[in-house]
Design a protein around this nucleic acid. Structure first.
Length: 720
DNA sequence: ACAAATACTGTTTTT
DNA sequence: CAGTATTTGT
């Protein structure tokens, strides 16, 4: 068998990974080291050399984009479609599994997926129903609690409140939430994974089938797996050591969401004879950029260790700009972009990265002023838009009357005279007789318990849904959606709303019909109908504004969403203490390391030019702040930095690049993040500092009393 | 049942 | 400050 096409163009480490024995393998793949390439070639190798049928392979990713790209590249390499191979996201594969095995999973055939917004609304409703004060029992917190438990594989009945009243109430909510989900046939994101895990664990015949079937399981971005995902992988793999995982501990930036970098470390413990391969040659950035990034990340204590290198030349120095304020920063960045474009750069090769999405606004304004086309990533996704969800709610209701979330959403939108009082009655009845809202309403109608007005309105709603269900039965998918939108009169409703967004909303509804036309219903999705498949698609792929082949434009996004991408010219903005690292992470060393990894991710996006900027003054929620330059800047060796100064510095001696950064240590004698001891308040962490000389004050977060501002000269602090 | 007024709250978000 | 969420008033 000629396998040159599989191995050609790979470096030694990549080739090692691709041809590794079919056994547990851990590939530590640094940024820009060709990890997708390795995965794709590995799969080709398994199929063509190891003669493993695609049917016995699974490749798991986190994003639909990554899954699609992988699938595409495999097909290009193999020159044939790979249809019977499982390639998808954790959630996508779990969903497919549950559709196939819905009986074993004890789910209704047409179960629906609850996205996080739906989940939030449901929990909010539940909190109210249980007569809990939602300022004390915040739905967001409850949601977080429930998902956290599920991510750890824990069911409510397995948990103990240990006498903690808060936890006890959380568990009550968790239990009740689960009851409603079960009753109404909906499954949230975390549940998809957990239930899949439990079904495979508890049904021996299913477990046997999959453990025998999968000869190799490949995992992308392994550092982002959470507890239950890893448990799931281990279960699927069974006693055979057939996991091939690729990841980079230095790019783990989703810890706040349950991702456990520790899974990488534990992997080597769980599978003793794991072959570890490091991909350290970087094919993306210049040496200066890479050295800067390496130097920053080397400040993290908990690392597996890895040092990227490149054969590329040194390239340009990292450019640093200290702006007067955030407006000056935006002006600087956009002026630079202007000249880069004038010199021939294409706009899509330029990215502006920032820590928080709120920062995008100033750049947008400046770009508009210069008439430079741009695109902001993130924000509300297509399938998450209110109007789209409204239309989908009607569709879902026709599909499953018991879907409470959709019932709540559709029942009075557009307003049809079913007010809060009526709905309240229905909710109460549903709660007491443990049935869905739909059934409750039906019963109440039968028992004539409404006012005439409410009865008429509600009856009209029921006939609307029931008639719609019948009328769309034999239509094809786009027609179904068209018909539903028509019958629901959503367009009229948005047309009348004069909040300026009515037209946009109507266009989005048309776009929804369009999306169904683009949607390819594959029978292998195991869903009952094309409608089920489309609804699942809408929930699982919230609509990465796919193939939005618009104009060549400058790319704006948060550092998080930049992961996995690369650009010729990268601007990282707002490099200030409090913003990046974000103040919410400042006093926790673990979260601080995650911020540093985020910085590393950002820097390694740049191929040729890396600009970093910070502002000496920034307006934040209405008031002016005077932040310090980010500590991460000081972690870049100064010989790699070239400071750009447009400020008229007419007097004073030349200061070295790093010396001109306003430095907390120089002013107060204390380093940000440093541990200190105060005779009265005990131990704490230095968060911030301001002022000079005798008046200098520092902010310290004390373990005992929380955060306080103290005047350095009186505070009598000692360092730890 | 709706619009207007007021209060609140500020991270990141693959699914 | 600015966007959202909830409460208030008609």
């Amino acid at each position: 068998m000629d396998i040159t096409h599989i191995l050609d163009g790979l470096n030694d480490a990549q080739r090692d990974a691709v041809t590794a024995p079919v056994n547990s393998t851990l590939v530590l793949a640094g940024a820009g080291s060709g990890k997708t390439r390795v995965l794709v070639h590995r799969i080709a190798y398994l199929i063509q050399v190891e003669k493993i049928s695609p049917w016995s392979l699974t490749a798991v990713t986190f994003t639909n984009k990554a899954a699609n790209e992988m699938k595409h590249r495999i097909e290009v390499l193999l020159k044939e479609p790979v249809n019977n191979m499982w390639v998808g996201t954790f959630h996508g594969l779990a969903h497919r599994f549950l559709r196939m095995h819905h009986i074993d999973a004890e789910l209704p055939k047409n179960f629906q997926i609850l996205d996080s917004d739906d989940q939030h609304r449901l929990i909010k409703r539940l909190t109210k129903e249980m007569n809990l004060d939602d300022s004390k029992w915040q739905p967001r917190q409850t949601q977080w609690f429930i998902n956290k438990q599920k991510d750890d594989g824990l069911r409510a009945d397995k948990l103990n409140h240990d006498g903690d009243p808060y936890k006890r109430q959380m568990l009550n909510l968790y239990k009740e939430y689960e009851n409603i989900c079960r009753r109404t046939g909906v499954v949230d994101f975390a549940e998809l994974i957990l239930l899949t895990y439990e079904t495979i664990r508890d049904k021996k015949h299913i477990q046997d089938h999959y453990q025998k079937r999968f000869k190799s399981i490949l995992v992308d971005e392994f550092q982002d797996t959470n507890n239950i995902q890893y448990m799931w992988l281990r279960l699927l793999c069974g006693k055979s050591n057939n996991l091939f995982v690729v990841g980079d501990d230095d790019q783990s930036i989703y810890g706040w969401r349950g991702a456990r970098v520790e899974n990488i470390q534990e992997f080597q413990k769980h599978y003793i004879d794991t072959k570890i391969i490091r991909l350290e040659q970087n094919y993306r950035s210049t040496n200066n950029i890479l050295s800067g990034a390496n130097s920053v990340i080397s400040n993290n204590a908990s690392r597996l260790g890895k040092n990227l290198w490149t054969e590329d030349g040194d390239g340009e120095l990292i450019k640093l700009y200290g702006a007067f304020n955030e407006i000056d920063e935006a002006r600087f960045v956009v002026n630079r972009i202007r000249s880069d474009i004038d010199e021939g750069s294409s706009r899509s090769e330029i990215a502006i990265l920032y820590r928080t999405s709120a920062q995008s606004r100033l750049f947008e304004e400046a770009l508009i002023q210069q008439e430079i086309p741009y695109r902001v990533y993130g924000g509300v996704k297509f399938f998450e838009r209110a109007e789209v969800k409204d239309a989908l709610a009607y569709l879902r209701l026709t599909n499953n009357y018991d879907d409470d979330s959709s019932f709540e959403r559709a029942v009075n939108r557009p307003a049809r005279g079913i007010g809060s009082k009526t709905i309240e009655t229905i909710r109460l009845y549903a709660k007491n007789s443990k049935c869905s809202l739909w059934q409750a309403g039906k019963k109440l109608l039968d028992e004539k318990l409404f006012t005439q007005r409410a009865e008429n309105s509600l009856k009209a709603f029921y006939s609307l849904i029931e008639e719609a269900k019948i009328s769309i039965e034999d239509l094809d998918l786009p027609q179904k959606v068209d018909e539903i939108i028509h019958r629901s009169q959503l367009k009229d409703y948005f047309n009348k709303s004069r909040d300026g967004k009515g037209q946009d909303r109507i266009e989005n509804l048309d776009e929804l019909i369009n999306a169904t036309r683009q949607f390819k219903y594959l029978d292998d999705q195991e869903t009952a109908s094309d409608l089920d498949a489309f609804l699942a698609h809408a929930a699982l792929e919230s609509g990465e504004q796919q193939a939005d082949f618009t104009e060549d434009s400058v790319q704006l996004m948060t550092l998080h969403s930049a992961k996995g991408l690369e650009f010729n010219i990268v601007f990282i903005c707002g490099m200030e203490e409090g913003l990046f690292p974000h103040s919410m992470s400042a006093d926790d060393p673990i979260r601080l390391e995650e911020e540093r990894r985020l910085c590393y991710v950002g820097m390694t996006r740049a191929m040729k030019y890396l600009y970093i900027s910070y502002a000496e003054s920034r307006r934040l929620h209405g008031s002016d702040t005077y932040p310090f330059a980010s500590r991460f800047l000081r972690e870049i060796p100064s010989n790699l930095i070239e400071e750009i100064r447009t400020k008229s510095k007419t007097s004073g001696p030349y200061t070295s690049p790093s010396g001109s950064l306003r430095d907390a240590q120089e002013i107060t004698g204390y380093q940000l993040g440093q541990r200190v001891f105060h005779p009265k308040f005990g131990e704490g962490t230095v968060l911030n500092a301001e002022g000079q000389g005798a008046g200098a004050r520092i902010q310290i977060n004390f373990e005992s009393v929380g955060s306080k501002w103290l005047v350095v000269s009186y505070a009598n602090l000692s360092t730890l």
